[in-house]
Nucleic acid binder design. Structure first.
Lengths: 102, 102
DNA sequence: CTGCATTATCGTATTTTTACGATAAAGGAA
DNA sequence: TTCCTTTATCGTAAAAATACGATAATGCAG
């Protein structure tokens, strides 16, 4: 039943939710570092990132998962290793969305 | 003592750290909603935002603090209330930084 | 002054995130 | 096959974030 007291919640659109998720993914120093490293070293392996961060392998793997789930990066299995790279379309889309904020 | 095994950590610059903090601030649905509300309703009061979100006043106040500390919004005391608005310079700077990613 | 309205902060419970060691899974080399 | 390398996942401990009610603190009206 609809009353005059219904709360007009400021809902986010699906796009805004996706942007929020990407923001959250990049809103952690370690993940921002990974993102930047990938932007400077395309096509690198998990081990490369582990070497460069002061974190355990399991932790880096977890951060990579968050970035993967946000869509900003993607990893393809390359033999026994996993090759990670930025997802260019997603990054471009993200930048467009942020540019359109306001 | 310095050895050849020193870890070359991928440090973030001060700017990148600030961007990361802003990303974190916007990486929560409630805060993204507040941000969007402020972009559509400049110069509004805490109570206005509380009315629009399905959250308690204390919680909204806490989210406003996070946004304030990120620099994206600023609040000025207006009588017994606080008037919030987006910090245009910070938002512009943030968008530039994101646009320059990669 | 007293009361009302507005908002920040405090204290706290719950949930989520973060980080790590240990383990599993999977590919390649010998 | 047996090793070695590489990485994801599991289990878990510690830290941080989230949400709320209760309580200040502040300004204004009467």
């Amino acid at each position: 039943m609809i009353t005059t007291h219904d709360i007009k919640t400021y809902q986010l659109t699906a796009d805004e939710e996706r942007v929020t998720l990407m923001m959250k993914a990049l809103g952690h120093p370690a993940r921002m570092q990974i993102f930047r490293y990938l932007s400077e070293n395309p096509q690198c392996i998990t081990g490369d990132i582990v070497e460069v961060l002061p974190l355990a392998q399991a932790t880096v793997s977890q951060h990579l998962k968050v970035l993967r789930e946000s869509g900003l990066i993607c990893g393809t299995i390359e033999g026994p290793a996993t090759c990670y790279c930025l997802c260019d379309e997603a990054v471009t889309w993200f930048k467009e969305q942020v540019g359109a904020l306001i």
